[in-house]
Design a binder for these strands. Structure first.
Lengths: 188, 188
DNA sequence: TAAATTTGTTACCGTTGGGTAACGAATGAG
DNA sequence: CTCATTCGTTACCCAACGGTAACAAATTTA
């Protein structure tokens, strides 16, 4: 029924995500999205709905890709501190190698739309809690793993915000090192 | 020379700050600023320059007022952990009492404009470092006060982002409590 | 092959965006 | 009192904004 799409919706959504990630909601225009996806906005509206829904779906895609990727890094290491070390290293390497200053889309969204758009706020809070649970899992059966994951989540968000703000890689490395000290050794 | 102003530039700047604080750079229109300041934009341009400069001056005013206020809270307590406890309590009380979800303007700005506008980025980084130094001062002559202030800054930013995202007061209280545990007792 | 459906394209809509020009009213300095 | 200066107000500018309508080309199902 009907003609087949000449574009890949998943590729388009990924491009949309990149734009919102780098420039925020208000900082991204439909024209920007047209250029990024190489699709006319008519197609974007038909495929994804309005800008608000595009943002929500971009957040969903972020969780599906980047956050899963981070979870994989976390679970690859055998001890908790090493796991988080690997996570921070990966982020700092992105900053150093590609001068990637986008930060974390979820963290940016928390500062951006949540206090204005209620629906986005709810989704962000839900994603943040799943993110925290990912941390908790990586901490293993340590006592107080819930409390530890709380403080690590706060530290992680701050770390990524500071990376976006433009702190140098050595500065970030120092902060990451201090954050790791929060994690008790031999906790897994 | 010339006629005297019928408005108070300081009051106007404070209103501008409130707007950028709540809604970000792109989320704030000149019309919003006209309404908030009760001044026509012609006057705003003459007084403060373009939108970019208004934002920079709003950030400056934030440091002059809110951050000084926080520094006062920090210095009022005799021990380091009590000082930060007082700071977090003040923030949580604002959330509970007035449902203040604006978060920290400096933290929001870090996620908002820094990776796009270089000049703002530089100012934000400078302000963040002064903010960290404020933390370091509050920590007193503890060993590793520099490193401790780094991790506390990251935790503080994450905490305020989470508050803006909409976490409940009890959740915030739990996180704040965990952050305080980072600070060694009797460190001052 | 016929019909229904969904595509890609073009054009358009009204609103709002940031920013500026022009000008009379007011008030300071000399 | 005079005059240069700075005020407040009105009007305007054009580009960009998010969003929609209309339609022909294409393609799958029946």
């Amino acid at each position: 029924m009907g003609r087949t799409k000449l574009y890949d919706p998943q590729v388009a959504l990924s491009a949309i995500k990149e734009q919102f990630w780098a420039n925020g909601f208000e900082g991204t225009s439909l024209h920007d999205l047209e250029v990024a996806t190489k699709l006319p906005k008519q197609t974007l509206y038909r495929e994804f709905g309005d800008k608000h829904q595009m943002y929500l779906k971009a957040l969903g895609d972020y969780e599906r890709t980047e956050i899963r990727e981070a979870a994989k890094i976390l679970s690859a290491e055998s001890d908790a501190r090493g796991a988080f070390q690997a996570l921070f290293d990966a982020i700092i390497n992105e900053v150093e190698g590609n001068n990637d200053r986008r930060g974390c889309f979820l963290c940016n969204a928390s500062a951006d739309r949540t206090s204005i758009d209620q629906e986005i706020g709810l989704q962000v809070v839900a994603m943040l809690d799943r993110w925290r649970k990912t941390f908790q899992t990586a901490l293993g059966p340590a006592p107080q793993s819930k409390e530890l994951s709380d403080v690590l989540l706060a530290g992680y968000i701050g770390f990524r915000i500071l990376a976006r703000a433009g702190l140098s890689a050595p500065q970030l490395r120092a902060i990451a090192g201090q954050l790791l000290n929060i994690i008790p050794t031999r906790s897994r």
